[in-house]
């Protein structure tokens, strides 16, 4: 099923506001249901998406809003993290689009803006963390924009330990 692409002029990319809490929680729930990102609702607070500053870390949650209705249709968190070698590495985390807008290029518009922002923060590299088992065709899409797989991250949740 092909969907009509949304023009970038129809989307506003802005920073998260506390009033976006419910909308982002809904998107995160959807993401968690599909990819089990380990969402704990009580830990996603109203202030969690605000721009954060701490030593060696900058974080912002970007919101994609539909200009015509003001609806939040996508979100993505970006982080600039200083590694032990003193270089800032940019990360795109928890990238998600509202179910009915998937395939309409919302994520692409959001990602372009995010990469621009990470560059302005002085990042030398950008990494995208994706969920295990995510569609291989998407990997090809990323590769076309210059992203190459470099690491596999293994995780063991402590709550699973006997």
């Amino acid at each position: 099923m092909s969907k009509e692409e949304i023009d970038k002029e129809e989307i506003i990319i802005r920073n998260y506001r506390t009033s976006d809490y419910e909308a982002t929680l809904e998107i995160l729930r959807e993401l968690d249901q599909t990819f089990h990102i380990g969402l704990k609702e009580d830990q996603w607070k109203q202030s969690s998406g605000l721009r954060q500053f701490k030593p060696n870390l900058k974080r912002i949650t970007l919101i994609a809003e539909l200009k015509s209705t003001g609806e939040v249709v996508g979100m993505g968190m970006i982080e600039a993290l200083k590694n032990p070698l003193g270089q800032y590495i940019g990360y795109l985390n928890n990238w998600a689009t509202k179910q009915e807008y998937i395939g309409m290029q919302v994520g692409k518009i959001l990602a372009k803006r995010a990469i621009k922002l990470l560059r302005s923060w002085g990042c030398e590299t950008v990494r995208i963390i994706v969920a295990w088992g995510f569609p291989e065709k998407l990997l090809k899409v990323f590769e076309q924009t210059g992203f190459k797989p470099i690491q596999i991250v293994l995780e063991n949740k402590f709550e699973n330990e006997q």
């Binding site: 506001r17 506390t18 721009r51 954060q52 500053f53 701490k54 030593p55 870390l57």
Partner: peptide, 20 residues
């Protein structure tokens, strides 16, 4: 323990500062 330059702070925007 922390010194952070905020180059732009949007109207009415809330920012979070974390410090150990």
């Amino acid at each position: 323990i922390m010194s952070q330059l905020v180059d732009e702070w949007f109207p009415q925007e809330e920012l979070v500062f974390l410090s150990p």
